[in-house]
Simulated assay, not measured.
Amino acid sequence: MPGKNISIIGLPASGKTTYIAALWALMLNNSPHCSLRLHSLKSGNQQYLNKISEAWLSFSEIGRTFLAKDVGEVVMNLQFKDSQEVAVLNIPDFFGELFDAHFKDREWTEDYFDLMKTSHQLILFVDPYHENNIARTIMDERQILEQYGDLEDVMEESAEQKQRGKEENKESGKVDTKESKSPLANAKIYQHINSSNQVKLVEILQYLLFSLSRAEPFKVAIVVSKWDKVMENFPNKRPDEVVKSNLPLLYQFLNCNASDLIFKFFGVSAQGVDYDNSDGLDEFVKMLPEDRVNIFDGANYSKNIATPITWLIE
Rank of each mutant, 00 (worst) to 15 (best):
98 L>M: 14
57 L>D: 05
182 S>Q: 10
8 I>R: 04
248 P>Y: 12
187 A>G: 06
20 I>R: 05
46 Q>S: 08
291 D>S: 15
133 N>P: 02
72 G>C: 12
178 K>M: 05
208 L>A: 15
188 K>S: 13
109 T>S: 15
187 A>N: 02
69 K>H: 07
32 P>I: 12
16 K>G: 06
211 S>A: 11
41 L>R: 14
304 N>E: 07
63 G>M: 11
173 G>H: 05
267 G>V: 01
174 K>Q: 15
292 R>M: 06
261 L>C: 05
145 L>C: 08
7 S>A: 15
223 V>Q: 09
154 V>K: 14
131 E>H: 09
167 E>L: 14
82 D>T: 04
195 S>E: 15
202 V>L: 10
180 S>V: 00
285 V>F: 10
3 G>H: 02
95 F>W: 09
280 G>N: 06
301 Y>D: 08
44 G>L: 11
16 K>N: 06
42 K>I: 04
194 N>Y: 14
230 V>F: 09
217 P>Y: 08
223 V>T: 10
52 I>V: 12
236 N>I: 01
279 D>Y: 07
128 P>Q: 14
212 L>H: 07
308 P>E: 10
257 N>K: 11
212 L>D: 04
6 I>L: 11
74 V>C: 10
51 K>P: 02
205 L>F: 03
53 S>W: 01
160 E>G: 00
245 S>H: 08
37 R>G: 04
71 V>K: 12
250 L>D: 01
185 A>L: 07
199 V>I: 12
40 S>P: 02
93 D>S: 08
17 T>D: 07
66 F>L: 15
41 L>Q: 11
250 L>G: 02
276 D>G: 06
150 D>R: 14
281 L>I: 01
298 G>P: 04
8 I>K: 03
282 D>P: 01
96 G>N: 07
102 H>P: 03
96 G>S: 08
171 E>N: 08
189 I>M: 12
295 I>R: 10
41 L>H: 02
20 I>T: 04
249 L>Q: 15
55 A>L: 09
221 A>D: 02
247 L>Y: 01
157 E>L: 13
14 S>N: 10
296 F>E: 00
135 A>G: 06
75 V>Q: 13
240 D>I: 04
163 Q>R: 13
106 R>Q: 11
212 L>A: 10
152 E>Y: 07
215 A>T: 03
47 Q>V: 05
272 G>A: 06
30 N>T: 02
261 L>A: 06
58 S>N: 15
313 I>Q: 05
38 L>T: 01
45 N>H: 11
199 V>N: 14
30 N>W: 00
217 P>G: 13
153 D>M: 11
208 L>N: 01
69 K>G: 14
49 L>N: 03
279 D>V: 09
131 E>V: 05
224 V>H: 10
139 M>N: 09
305 I>R: 09
82 D>K: 15
114 D>E: 12
219 K>G: 02
120 H>Q: 12
130 H>L: 09
309 I>S: 00
135 A>Q: 10
129 Y>D: 03
5 N>G: 08
29 N>P: 01
165 G>F: 03
163 Q>G: 01
220 V>P: 04
207 Y>A: 05
60 S>D: 11
34 C>L: 08
119 S>K: 04
206 Q>N: 13
56 W>P: 02
39 H>S: 13
94 F>Y: 12
99 F>N: 03
179 E>G: 07
296 F>L: 06
40 S>F: 04
20 I>Y: 03
258 A>C: 07
188 K>M: 08
161 Q>W: 04
33 H>T: 00
276 D>V: 00
234 F>K: 14
209 L>W: 02
